[in-house]
């Protein structure tokens, strides 16, 4: 049971002897806080690791991001609102840690609301059908190629695709993780999907997934 208490915990400073840090633990205290953190945050460790790995594309970097994510989460646990999605909260921290580690500014790509790319999906399909690729995903195992294509996909499109299509988040949750409006998530997501699909058609062609020249494929 959570005990709401207002208190200030002073953590010892670093070994250099600098002053300690006063940590506001007004949301909960001591063992209650740890119990809450264990119950709410720890179960998502594997998910956060997977998310970090897809962002960093490097196991060592992912390790560092995950550790920093959980340390920040523990230190700022008093800011987590009970009853809200802890996984989404952790993913937000994780993504911010990742972006800071790359010394990147927050992406400023400002796309339209996604309508153009939604319509463009029709052209991608039309082009695929003209070349006989309309059953591409049912015929070929493209997961490995798609994984490579996703690794190469530029930010901020990659984050949008990872959050919605791989991590199965809603537009709203992804928007909160990315710190952008839902419309921006849609536009980045639709653009990312279109870029991936165009890449996969190229992969299929390179694999010799030709049609007209070899007749019916089934």
């Amino acid at each position: 049971m959570t005990t709401a208490t207002h208190a200030t915990l002073t953590l010892p400073g670093p070994t250099s002897g600098a002053a300690g840090v006063a940590l506001d633990v007004s949301a909960s205290t001591g063992t209650n806080r740890d119990a809450e953190f264990e119950r709410e945050a720890l179960p998502w460790l594997d998910d956060v690791y997977r998310f970090a790995l897809t962002l960093t594309r490097d196991e060592s970097d992912a390790d560092d991001v995950v550790q920093e994510t959980y340390l920040r989460a523990y230190r700022s646990w008093h800011t987590f609102i009970p009853g809200t999605e802890c996984r989404r909260w952790l993913f937000t921290i994780c993504r911010n840690v990742f972006l800071r580690s790359r010394e990147r500014q927050r992406p400023t790509v400002d796309l339209e609301d996604g309508e153009q790319d939604a319509l463009a999906a029709g052209s991608v399909y039309a082009a695929a059908r003209e070349r006989g690729y309309d059953d591409l995903y049912a015929t070929l195992d493209l997961a490995p190629a798609l994984r490579d294509a996703l690794d190469e996909l530029a930010e901020p499109f990659r984050s949008a695709v990872i959050l919605v299509d791989v991590e199965d988040m809603t537009y709203e949750s992804a928007a909160q993780v990315m710190g952008v409006p839902i419309g921006t998530v849609r536009s980045r997501l639709f653009r990312g999907r279109r870029l991936l699909q165009e890449k996969l058609v190229t992969v299929a062609e390179d694999l010799g997934f030709a049609t007209a020249s070899v007749g019916v494929r089934r």
Binding site: L146, V161, V166, E167, D168, L196
Partner: peptide
């Protein structure tokens, strides 16, 4: 089918 393939990456 494209989205199903993407979901496999999870």
């Amino acid at each position: 089918s494209f989205l199903d393939t993407l979901a496999q990456l999870r």
